[in-house]
Design a binder for these strands. Structure first.
Lengths: 210, 210
DNA sequence: AGCATTCTTGACCCTGGGGTCAACTTACGC
DNA sequence: GCGTAAGTTGACCCCAGGGTCAAGAATGCT
């Protein structure tokens, strides 16, 4: 790769990181190129697709943020507190960084690193929930799928309130967390959790896929 | 108004009602005209704006559905049951009828009838919540704004799952309702509910306004 | 039945996003 | 320092949706 191409790729990565974090993973690619001071043809030439760019720019960031949250959650003595920390922290990440919000609640099958990270995050979440369940801290029928769906709606809510009342999402989180304490269940749930394939479909549509 | 124009307006209203209920209030106007068997120019000529068409076609329907739900909710002996019925019923309406979903969680300032209906629905919801609160059936810090925000996210969730697992939203509703029972509150909420102006902003953005 | 008025039509414009490629420019090895 | 391979550019294409309007068609009054 020639030196100028290298430089342009770097400029594009920087611009993409900025814009993804400001406005989410759906910003127009032409706008990224504009901010990088480069023709959009160059962007297509160097990265080919949006997902390739996302994979290079966002994967590391997401891995850090989500990994840290999970690790910290598992370090709590009280499993219930760890779970509450994790749920609220992920929601907070979604609220403060649209890129993370889209990673958590989106669908990027061609972004390999990102997919790996999502898998790991999903596993961590399951462990955190399981631990809280075993400790009797949350109702036993709450699953990882339920949490992921909640994150999906939280991403949209957090973005909707961002300019108006940036903490408004916290109330919804509080209602969920307070309500999950084990004793509240009033009869069995009438619906089963979704299968992985269903989750994949649904998260795509939540994020606005065709 | 000439007889043919009258007929066309009727065909357009019928087509709009169908498409709004199938796909929500954002269907392309050209598609409505196509289904009505009429040029899209005619639609613009007869109705002018999307909101005018919505106001004529959807307002009555929404009033019926929401009014009935509220009325029935208030007829329960147990205020808490009435509240639970209302919340779940509105979510169900949203899940089964995208038009209602968009009415509840959207923003149509130029649609006068619709605005009036939304106001009345809002009032009814407040009464239902207040009644449940006075009966000690739900945590006292839950407000009408919280319920409306929940409806807003439910609209998106219900639409996302519609083709895959059409009842998946019920789990989230169950977590909320089970969790609102008065005893669960673990300390005061850290955030105040939104003001009407803020709600207006936020609902617009949730529904995907500019 | 004739004709003014009212309606309808569809071609047209605009916006904004994704994506391609021939022609130009630049870097770098020799 | 020069030729060639590598890289860049921006005009161009696509699509979908909103919206307008001159020309032509239909209605209904007299």
């Amino acid at each position: 790769m020639r030196a100028d191409a290298q430089r342009n790729a770097e400029k594009l990565r920087a611009a993409a990181a900025e814009l993804f974090q400001e406005r989410g993973l759906k910003v127009p690619l032409k706008e990224i190129a504009r901010r990088a001071g480069v023709s959009h043809g160059t962007l297509y030439n160097l990265f080919g697709t949006r997902e390739a760019l996302i994979d290079e720019v966002v994967a590391g960031l997401a891995a850090d943020r989500l990994g840290e949250a999970a690790e910290h959650a598992l370090s709590f003595e009280e499993a219930g507190e760890g779970f509450a920390y994790y749920a609220e922290r992920v929601c907070e990440l979604q609220a403060t960084d649209p890129a993370v919000a889209d990673v958590v609640s989106g669908r990027y099958p061609a972004a390999e690193c990102l997919m790996a990270i999502c898998g790991r995050a999903q596993d961590a979440a399951t462990r955190i929930i399981e631990r809280a369940r075993l400790a009797g801290a949350i109702r036993p029928d709450f699953t990882g799928e339920d949490l992921l769906l909640f994150f999906g709606t939280n991403a949209l809510l957090a973005r909707a309130v961002a300019d108006t009342a940036p903490d408004a999402w916290r109330r919804q989180v509080a209602f969920l967390l307070d309500g999950l304490s084990a004793e509240t269940s009033q009869g069995p749930l009438s619906v089963a959790p979704l299968t992985p394939q269903q989750m994949y479909d649904v998260m795509g549509r939540l994020a606005g896929a065709p």
